[in-house]
Computed example of a mutant assay.
Amino acid sequence: MTGNTDHKKPDRITRVHLWVGRILLIVVGLEWIYLLTESQWLSLFVVSLLLIVLFIPIIFRKRLQVDIPAEFHLTAVIFTFAALYLGEVQHFYQRVWWWDIGLHASAGLIMGIFGFLLIYILNESKRIDIHLTSGFIALFAFTFAVSIGTIWEILEFTIDHTFELNMQKQMMDDPSGLTDTMWDMIVNAGGAFIISMSGWMYLKSAKNYFVREWIKKFIEKNPRLFSR
């Protein structure tokens, strides 16, 4: 990284981000070695995805010259760790009844934030001459999050039928897994709706809400992407 901001003392969230990243890197790295020695290839693949997420800021900074704020990456890391490592590898989906529902609701929130930020960047970029209304930006964020949730359900269905797993949580009273799939999509859409409406209110009135500071930090770290 370059610039004067590199010499500033890291704030609290940045320090938390660094320590959480280091701890998870050790835990996930040891798990990766164990799974490799035990030839548990599917779990090894899942843990490898988590390792990629841990290194995303470095990849984005070097390849795309995009600096990801600590809040964004910390949220993504915690979610991915809960979904992939705890959920799939440590079987929390079977051990904790609300784990799947909670993560899909969180996914709607996170993908809504990402979709909102993505279209906001395009709307403010110097390189792309488009001017979108606040309503359209909010609608895009909602549909983006719902689309990602739908793609994930398709992926679960495909993996279950290819590798004979149970990512769709098929039960005795619902052997098709349809009930689990529908609830996943409903709570995902609910999370996306909350973020989209929050973003719309921010654009219309500039009132403060919990995502505003995240967006401001992203803009401050990547001024070249924005026209103002």
Rank of each mutant, 00 (worst) to 15 (best):
A192D: 06
E153L: 09
I130M: 13
I148F: 12
D129Y: 05
V146N: 05
I159L: 14
D184R: 04
P175D: 11
V187P: 03
G149I: 08
I151A: 13
G135R: 12
T143N: 12
T133P: 03
L139Y: 11
T158N: 07
L178I: 11
G191N: 05
A138Q: 07
A192N: 03
M185L: 15
L178E: 08
I151F: 14
E153R: 07
Q168K: 09
F140A: 06
I154F: 15
A145N: 00
T162K: 01
F163S: 04
G191L: 05
T133G: 15
M172S: 11
F140V: 14
D160Q: 02
Q168C: 04
L155P: 00
A189N: 04
Q170P: 00
H131S: 13
T158G: 06
I137G: 05
N188C: 15
L165V: 05
F140T: 11
H131F: 07
E153M: 08
F163D: 01
I137Y: 03
T162L: 13
S176A: 11
F142R: 04
M167F: 15
T143S: 14
Q170C: 09
S147D: 05
G190H: 08
F163Q: 03
T179R: 14
W152L: 15
A189S: 14
L155A: 13
N166T: 00
E156D: 11
I137K: 15
E164H: 09
M167P: 03
M172H: 09
